[in-house]
Design a binder for these strands. Structure first.
Length: 195
DNA sequence: TGTTGGATCAACT
DNA sequence: GTTGATCCAACAC
């Protein structure tokens, strides 16, 4: 098991603008203290969903039971279920009252790889290169919705291993506001989704 | 109360 | 390139 060291990101990290947080989350390490053991991965792909002016953001239609956590302060998890089979894990950003979040699309496994492999039906190396696959491998469900990332169940640390080579592109898999260049990824990673 | 479609993935043709 | 799997939230009635 790899040693997980580094400083846990403080609340203030998440209160900045969503696009800034999305970029800065690249090459940070997400740690999940699961019942099966510690799972961790380097974040290599994110997307920003920003407030009511973004038609692709769930919060664009106003506050609902589902997206309520996005209206709270940054540093909380927003997990939703989609297409009947997949969960997507988001990190809420910005101040309370401003609904926005960063979708985690892909990670590079760092620790608990045996758990990831066990959770994933595909036993090859590509079990976390997509938001649905990432949640399935980590065992994240909407039971994890609304968790405080400043606590010890799920949190993010800065290992300062290396600086990402940041690539930018339009978001993937949405029908609205496709033109916005709010997808960010590490060009050096071979774990990113899509191309 | 009923209908519809989605921030996906994998297995087809 | 297209489609099936399959649940839940949003919206229309």
């Amino acid at each position: 098991m790899n040693e997980i060291t580094g400083q846990k990101l403080p609340r203030e990290f998440y209160l900045k603008s969503t696009v800034t947080v999305a970029k800065e989350l690249l090459r940070k390490t997400i740690v999940y203290n699961s019942s099966s053991g510690i799972i961790a991965g380097d974040i290599v792909e994110t997307e920003a969903y920003v407030g009511r002016e973004d038609p692709a953001c769930h919060a664009a239609v106003g506050k609902t039971d589902r997206n309520a956590v996005m209206f709270g302060p940054g540093g909380f998890s927003y997990v939703y279920f989609i297409y009947g089979m997949y969960n997507c894990f988001n990190i809420v950003t910005e101040q309370e009252g401003f609904p926005a979040a960063v979708l985690i699309r892909a990670v590079e496994p760092v620790a608990g790889i045996d758990i990831l492999m066990a959770n994933s039906p595909a036993k090859d190396s590509k079990f976390s290169n997509g938001p649905g696959k990432f949640c399935r491998a980590f065992g994240i469900t909407r039971e994890h919705n609304g968790l405080d990332l400043c606590n010890n169940t799920i949190y993010i640390i800065d290992q300062k291993v290396k600086a990402p080579e940041i690539g930018i592109s339009p978001r993937i898999g949405i029908k609205k506001a496709k033109e916005k260049p709010w997808r960010f990824f590490d060009c050096d990673s071979c774990y990113i989704s899509g191309k």
